[in-house]
Design a protein around this nucleic acid. Structure first.
Length: 876
RNA sequence: GGGGGCAUAGCUCAGUUGGUUAGAGCGCACGCUUCACAUGCGUGAGGUCACAGGUUCAAGUCCUGUUGUCCCCACCA
């Protein structure tokens, strides 16, 4: 076999590895009754979308969980798909057509949809290809689309069921209207921002009197639809006017003055113009006082025929004209600058108009309740659990969901109206005749459903529901949903109540919530700021593995994170380290008959130590992954790989590898190979490409790492006490290194070590390693180091007292100062321990192990203190 | 008005059911042509865990309050 390239170059193998996984069908979900299923539904990206850092993080987290579970032996399904994104897509297509000078009305519904499907075929796959670059191991053969036949059937079924139970109704209510997209929006699709505006103060004359009532408005044009002025019932300033009639200026309509608690007497003038058709609060006031609702605006934001002379004007032009006219009539009192919250369309940013309109709604109260209960009863668990509160907060304050959209791209509302008898019929299959009167003169509702209506069904629509398909039975309910906290109201919530309603089961057991990926300065990445970083560009330069690692290391669940190229570099450096460590092992294994496993290997202390560390790491990483603590898992892996394995064990192994004892060399290589293989497997969910690539070079591998068993903790290999003893060797080596630095002794200068110790055997056995790593020429055991003279540096460790004669490098004064400082530190430790032990409550109430540890610690430091004191005495 | 987050080293952040001497990366200082890796190795400096109380044998961690900061929702005629 070829040797590994000397440099880590992800571009050389990532695409090849991915293609091979695909070719071998590694991602395919299989219904296997012998296995436990594990299912994740990918949040379907919009077909208009381009991969951004948010996706990259979301996908990475899912892929880590999926690969981990796959290796643990579950039968995994990671269901991918895309969302038709009704409004977003239609908006894009309309924009494109605008460039060609065509409107969708000119084109007609059918032709428009033809274009939309073409558009979907052309661009809808782009994001899918981008997801592959990340290494996502989802079952692409099951790629779903919210408007494919399966999902569309589910939508029909769901609508039909709710309709039958009266949970979907059609009614005239105030809704959010986007005059630009010309459609209704749900409350969640409106984005509010503090905008600078004005307060216009208008005088409305009281009929048959010289008196006026002054109102303030931020939207003068809506006065055309005023049907009352309201004041607070207890407001003495206006009480004499309640019940009187006003003449609405410019319009001439007679409108009443009504008293209503809704009015805040402290705000503005304490008198409010009431426009029931164009404001949600006014709408309610209108209902209470039985006021007429006069809609004065057309769908495109122009004033309609109700606006008299202003009809046809755009809303803002009308505003200007009305202010002028009022001014002319001396009815304009003043204009004040005023900041207020204005709703904007989440798609096109146009200012939303609250408008009374006939739309379809889902009655939320009966759906919300079971969704709240399911989380309260822990049937679905949020990670981190604080997001459950946010979820409750949404569902407890929820209003009915406006689901109709005046769009063409989407699921058309399955309701038909009979032109003859007027009957309204909802049907799962298209109908051609009225079931009531048999008339064939029918027309289907023109509107489409909110895109989220179909997304809400995603966990089961993709599995074939309402049919009891084998995959539905096997893979549903799903195990974990991974998504950002910003999506809870749009999607998580709606999947929850939909899943419970339609399937009787919660759609997922766990919801893993992550935060936003921000830029280096902590700002949201956005198109308008131009601060977005393209994940594909990062992959191109650093590789997907580095990107993946950088998106999860040091990130706590649910928290936002800043993306910096420095983090990617760190991850790349780490992977490079793994690459080179692997290369080291493989180079040394060349031509050697490396043991296939640990059976029969005679372990050296260092071997037991690294195996012990490996076992601890396996346990920690597994526990962390099972709790979705991906950042912690990655951190444990990194420090094991870099510190324990590379910086210590590989260095320790060199004396055996470069020595003459062939059996020892074989044994060491066996351990190296075992640990490396385990490490690669542990790392595979995080860095799938490089681990698969390296795995391919391992001599004793079987199959591919993606299908390998995840390493398991083996208590027989824990070697706890042996590992602890070996820490003494490490401590010794570190101490010697530090001693050399303290006297500016060049690291390359070999020193003669004198040790006073009870653990002679430990240090003898590991002599080779100590000499190599501490930079020593010899180890000599002595009974009394003080006899070695003054030109000496000494250091006490837990297991030994070290003496290094360094001749003229030693400055007695400095050495005395160093030892004095060391003594102070030790005395501090003793004081701390004794303080604790003097506390009777601690001794009585703390766990015995802690108390014992404290005694041991005190004794250890007392011992060290004695030695340091002796040494100080000997050089003074 | 309601809800939530955050405040830990110069910077960005971890800190897993309260329990050794609070960690990492980057940065910084000193040293290293050590035969896997300078995308590296060694050694180190650097923290009143925002503040004030409380619970506890024990608090970065739990509770209350304060300050600062960010986010979400509602309201804003």
């Amino acid at each position: 076999m070829k040797d590994m390239q000397t440099t880590y170059d992800p571009r050389e193998f990532e695409d090849r590895i991915y293609a091979n996984w695909m070719k071998k069908g590694c991602f395919k979900a299989k219904i296997d009754p012998a296995k436990v299923p594990f299912t994740v539904m990918m949040p379907p990206p919009n077909i208009t979308g381009r991969l951004h850092m948010g996706h990259a993080m979301d996908e990475t987290m899912q892929d880590i969980v999926i690969r981990f579970k796959r290796m643990q032996g579950y039968s995994v399904l990671w269901q991918p798909g895309t969302d038709h994104a009704s409004l977003a897509t239609e908006h894009k297509i309309v924009e494109k057509m605008r460039e060609e000078g065509i409107t969708k009305e000119e084109l007609g519904r059918e032709e428009f949809l033809k274009r939309a499907w073409e558009w979907k075929e052309q661009y809808g796959g782009a994001i899918v290809e981008q997801l592959k670059k990340l290494g996502s191991s989802c079952d692409w053969s099951r790629l779903a689309f919210t408007m494919d036949e399966r999902c569309s059937r589910a939508v029909r079924e769901a609508f039909f069921r709710l309709y039958e139970k009266g949970l979907i109704y059609r009614g005239s209510r105030i809704i959010n209207w986007c005059p630009d997209c010309k459609t209704a929006l749900s409350d969640e699709e409106v984005i509010y921002s503090e905008d600078a505006g004005y307060f216009w103060y208008f005088k409305y004359p009281v009929e048959g009197s010289e008196e006026f009532i002054t109102i303030a408005t931020t939207r003068p044009e809506t006065m055309l639809g005023d049907t009352a002025v309201a004041v607070h019932p207890a407001d003495k300033r206006y009480s004499h006017l309640v019940g009187k009639t006003l003449i609405l200026p410019l319009v001439g309509r007679k409108i009443p003055v009504v008293a209503d608690d809704y009015v805040d007497p402290e705000f503005g003038t304490g008198a409010v113009k009431i426009t029931p058709a164009h404001d949600p609060n006014d709408f309610n006031v209108g209902l209470r006082h039985n006021l007429p609702m006069i809609r004065i605006m057309a769908d495109d934001g122009t004033i309609n025929e109700q606006g008299g002379e202003f009809a046809g004007l755009d809303r803002y032009a009308a505003r200007e004209r009305i202010v002028q006219e009022m001014d002319k009539r001396k009815l304009l009192v003043k204009i004040e600058p005023h900041k207020h919250n204005v709703g904007h369309c989440h798609r096109c940013n146009a200012t939303i108009e609250p408008i009374v309109s006939k739309q379809w709604f889902v009655k939320m109260a009966p759906l919300a309740k079971p969704a709240i209960d399911a989380v309260a009863k822990n049937k679905t668990k949020f990670t981190p659990d604080r997001f459950a509160k946010i979820y409750y907060n949404w569902l407890e304050n929820i209003r009915d969901w406006c689901i109709s959209r005046q769009l063409w791209w989407g699921h058309r509302i399955p309701v038909w109206y009979c032109d003859d008898c007027g009957a309204m019929t909802c049907a799962k299959e298209d109908i051609t005749a009225c079931p009531k009167c048999g008339s064939v003169h029918l027309h289907q509702d023109e509107d489409c459903l909110d895109t989220w209506f179909s997304s809400a069904l995603w966990p089961f629509s993709t599995l074939g529901w309402p049919e009891e398909t084998p995959e539905f039975k096997y893979f549903y309910p799903t195990d974990v949903l991974v998504t950002g906290y910003d999506i809870i109201p749009f999607w998580v919530m709606r999947m929850m109540f939909s899943g419970i309603r339609y399937t009787g089961k919660v759609p997922f057991r766990d919801v893993l919530i992550h935060g936003l990926v921000r830029d280096e300065l902590g700002r949201k990445m956005s198109k308008s700021l131009g601060n977005g970083i393209d994940p594909l560009d990062i992959i191109e330069r650093y590789g997907a593995d580095s990107l993946r690692l950088s998106l999860i290391t040091g990130v706590a669940p649910g928290n936002d994170t800043r993306f910096t190229e420095g983090k990617v570099e760190s991850s790349r450096n780490f992977i490079n380290k793994i690459w080179n460590a692997s290369r080291f092992v493989l180079m040394n294994a060349k031509g050697v008959d490396v043991p296939k496993d640990l059976t029969g290997i005679k372990f050296a202390p260092a071997d037991r130590w690294i195996i012990s560390r490996l076992m601890a790491t396996i346990r920690e990483v597994t526990v962390a992954l099972e709790k979705y603590d991906l950042g912690i898992a990655a951190d444990k892996l990194t420090s094991f790989a870099w510190d324990d394995f590379c910086d210590w064990y590989i260095e320790l192994s060199k004396s055996a590898l470069y020595g003459d004892d062939l059996e020892k060399k074989r044994a060491t290589l066996g351990v190296l190979m075992f640990v490396l293989t385990s490490l690669l497997k542990l790392l595979h969910p995080f860095a799938p490409f490089v681990t698969e690539e390296i795995y391919g070079y391992l001599p004793n591998r079987e199959g591919m790492i993606i299908d390998a068993d995840y390493p398991r903790y083996n208590s027989k290999l824990a070697y706890k006490s042996e590992a602890k003893a070996f820490e003494g060797v490490i401590e010794l080596i570190k101490a010697v290194r530090a001693m050399k630095v303290s006297v500016n002794c060049p690291p390359s200068k070999k020193v003669h070590l004198y040790l006073m110790t009870d653990a002679r055997r430990l240090f003898s056995v590991n002599k080779g390693a100590i000499l190599r790593l501490a930079g020593a020429s010899e180890i000599e055991f002595v009974e009394n180091g003080a006899e070695l003279g003054e030109k000496i540096v000494s250091q006490v460790t837990g297991a030994a007292q070290i003496f290094v004669p360094l001749g003229d490098l030693v400055n007695i004064e400095e050495e005395r100062a160093r030892l004095t400082k060391e003594l102070a530190r030790i005395e501090g430790e003793i004081a701390r321990a004794e303080g604790k032990l003097a506390n009777q409550n601690f001794v009585a109430k703390a766990p015995k192990k802690l108390v014992d540890d404290e005694y041991a610690k005190r004794d250890k430091y007392l011992e060290m203190k004695k030695k340091v004191e002796e040494q100080l005495k000997s050089i003074s």
